[in-house]
Computed example of a mutant assay.
Amino acid sequence: MLNVSKKNSKIKSKETLAARFSNFIVLVRKDFKLNKGLYLMFLPVLAFYLVFHYGPMYGLIMAFKDFQPTKGISGSDWVGFKNFIDFFQSFYFWRVLKNTLVISITNLIFGFPAPIILALLINEIRNKYFKSAVQSISYMPHFISLVVVCGMIKDFTSDTGVISYIITLFGGQATTLLNEARNFVPVYVISDIWQTVGWGTIIYLAALTGIDQELYEAAQVDGAGKWKQTLHITIPGIMPTIIIMLVLRMGSMLSVGFEKIILLYNPAIYSTADVISTFVYRKGLQEFAFSYSAAVGLFNSVINFILLVTANKLSKKFSDSSLW
């Protein structure tokens, strides 16, 4: 009798799943008929992610193989977790992990609040012409080529650059800042804030426009000044946006942009400038250790995924805002 009841329950569960799937197909067909234009607009986006994001995932198998270009991915010998173990036991593991975390956390502490503060300041400007000028000037660095930006940074921080000149005015000694390991993180973070702070204000300025202006009028009637209005109305009003942006930022904590670092660093400052992404670049494209670099890159992606999920869960637990 028990076996018969189990079989009946399995059959019913299969039938319910089949019914749900058929209902889903019917709903999709109806929605497609109503929104054909939207689906057609979505097709290029879907194709982009399938070709450039999901398709290359097949190459992750290299992390578990001794990849030989002549044999191909499928023909190369399987080595399991050997590449991961070699990375974890190498001298470079703790160095690149520490450097990546130091740069990411420093950039998060100083760089993440910067566009929020600038957006709050711009929002208080009443002269529309001056406001537009401030926005345009702050946006400009975002549109400058990264190669040009790094060239400017190298010129400004050289021993004959403007920053060295300012240092000498205060009694310091003119040196090339990027030749000293201790200077790399401040130079990187400050230049990154300068380049991205204006562009980052766009989403916060958009969130500020959604705050009910009657709340400010009521606060003024109650005698609240600008500072109290900011603390009790403005910041709570844009807090969901701040949390979502913070969760997204946490998901890319270990993905420090290697292009800028490669353009700025040199062997003399590897001790503080070498991060996971630049290490992958050197191992994969300069030393042709494809499997080893694939293993390091996969490790980086897994850690980023864990950080993203953890940050989203914490956000969902302590607030009403989350990505999913």
Score class of each variant (00 low, 15 high):
residue 315 S to Q: 02
residue 269 I to F: 06
residue 302 V to D: 08
residue 275 V to N: 06
residue 305 F to N: 11
residue 294 A to K: 06
residue 193 I to W: 01
residue 81 F to Q: 08
residue 16 T to D: 14
residue 12 K to E: 13
residue 73 I to K: 03
residue 312 N to H: 00
residue 46 L to R: 03
residue 178 L to W: 00
residue 294 A to T: 13
residue 45 V to P: 06
residue 290 F to K: 09
residue 33 K to C: 11
residue 34 L to H: 09
residue 152 M to D: 01
residue 22 S to V: 14
residue 150 C to G: 00
residue 99 N to V: 02
residue 135 Q to R: 00
residue 83 N to V: 03
residue 301 S to A: 13
residue 316 K to D: 13
residue 84 F to Y: 04
residue 167 I to A: 04
residue 103 I to V: 07
residue 301 S to N: 11
residue 212 D to F: 02
residue 127 N to V: 02
residue 119 A to P: 05
residue 205 L to K: 01
residue 21 F to T: 12
residue 43 L to A: 14
residue 213 Q to V: 12
residue 305 F to L: 14
residue 185 V to H: 11
residue 35 N to A: 11
residue 43 L to W: 14
residue 42 F to E: 05
residue 158 S to D: 07
residue 278 T to C: 02
residue 104 S to N: 01
residue 147 V to P: 06
residue 161 G to T: 07
residue 35 N to Y: 12
residue 13 S to N: 13
residue 298 L to H: 14
residue 113 P to N: 05
residue 67 F to S: 09
residue 79 V to A: 04
residue 319 S to T: 11
residue 302 V to I: 15
residue 214 E to I: 00
residue 3 N to R: 09
residue 270 Y to I: 07
residue 148 V to T: 05
residue 320 D to H: 13
residue 11 I to V: 15
residue 54 Y to V: 10
residue 265 Y to I: 04
residue 174 A to F: 07
residue 278 T to H: 03
residue 286 Q to G: 10
residue 207 A to L: 06
residue 212 D to S: 04
residue 92 Y to W: 13
residue 262 I to P: 07
residue 59 G to Q: 11
residue 140 M to Q: 07
residue 171 G to K: 02
residue 270 Y to L: 12
residue 77 D to E: 13
